[in-house]
Amino acid sequence: MAKRNQHVVPHDRGRAVKPTGGERASSVHDTQREAINRGREIARNQGTELFIHGRNGQIRERDSHGRDPYPPKG
């Protein structure tokens, strides 16, 4: 299975976690916090990125769990 970035997006039943390019949500949660926690868990396990979208659909935050080509120095 290919590793794909995870997105926390608005859903008619709360918030959903969806992989990049995925049609269906991998999980649906009542609260944004629950969705972020699940999305972060998946991203950590896969070594990918987590994108958190606001109500308007725009990315408002991102969390990298992959190999950073430009890590912070010192």
Results as ranks from 00 to 15, higher is better:
Met1Ile: 06
Lys3His: 15
Asn5Tyr: 05
Asn5Ile: 03
Asn5Met: 13
Gln6Met: 09
Gln6His: 05
His7Met: 10
His7Gln: 11
His7Ala: 03
Val8Gln: 01
Val9Cys: 09
Val9Leu: 13
Val9Ser: 05
Pro10Ser: 08
Pro10Glu: 03
Pro10Ala: 05
His11Asn: 08
His11Phe: 04
His11Ala: 06
His11Gly: 01
His11Tyr: 00
His11Glu: 05
Asp12Thr: 12
Arg13Thr: 12
Arg13Gln: 09
Gly14Lys: 09
Gly14Ile: 06
Gly14Glu: 10
Gly14Leu: 03
Arg15Phe: 15
Arg15Tyr: 15
Ala16Met: 00
Lys18Arg: 14
Lys18Gly: 10
Lys18Val: 15
Pro19Arg: 09
Thr20Arg: 06
Thr20Met: 04
Thr20Ala: 10
Gly21Ala: 11
Gly21Thr: 11
Gly21Leu: 04
Gly21Trp: 02
Gly22Asp: 13
Gly22Ser: 07
Arg24Ile: 10
Arg24Ala: 07
Arg24Cys: 09
Arg24Gln: 12
Ala25Cys: 07
Ala25Lys: 12
Ala25Val: 07
Ala25Trp: 09
Ser26Ala: 10
Ser26Phe: 15
Ser26Tyr: 14
Ser27Trp: 03
Val28Gln: 02
Val28Arg: 07
His29Ser: 02
His29Ile: 07
His29Val: 02
Asp30Arg: 06
Thr31Gly: 01
Thr31Met: 02
Gln32Ile: 10
Arg33Tyr: 14
Arg33Val: 14
Glu34Lys: 12
Glu34Trp: 04
Ala35Leu: 03
Ala35Arg: 01
Ile36Ser: 01
Ile36Met: 13
Asn37Leu: 14
Arg38Gln: 13
Gly39Asp: 03
Gly39Cys: 00
Arg40Gly: 09
Arg40Leu: 08
Arg40Ser: 14
Arg40Tyr: 08
Arg40Cys: 04
Glu41Arg: 14
Ile42Ser: 11
Ile42Thr: 11
Ile42Gln: 12
Ala43Gln: 06
Ala43Ile: 05
Ala43Asp: 02
Ala43Phe: 02
Arg44Trp: 10
Arg44Ser: 13
Asn45Met: 09
Gly47Ala: 12
Gly47Met: 10
Glu49Gln: 14
Glu49Ile: 13
Glu49Asp: 12
Glu49Asn: 15
Glu49Tyr: 15
Leu50Thr: 01
Phe51Arg: 13
Phe51Thr: 06
Ile52Cys: 04
Ile52Ala: 06
His53Ser: 13
His53Phe: 02
His53Glu: 05
His53Tyr: 03
Gly54Glu: 07
Gly54His: 06
Arg55Ala: 14
Arg55Val: 15
Arg55Met: 15
Arg55Ser: 15
Gly57Thr: 07
Gly57Lys: 05
Gln58Trp: 08
Gln58Phe: 06
Ile59Trp: 05
Arg60Pro: 07
Arg60Lys: 12
Arg62Thr: 14
Asp63Tyr: 10
Ser64Val: 02
Ser64Asn: 14
His65Gln: 15
Gly66His: 09
Gly66Ser: 14
Arg67Pro: 08
Arg67Glu: 14
Arg67Ser: 07
Arg67Met: 11
Asp68Ile: 05
Pro71Thr: 00
Pro72Trp: 00
Pro72Lys: 00
Lys73Leu: 01
Gly74Met: 00
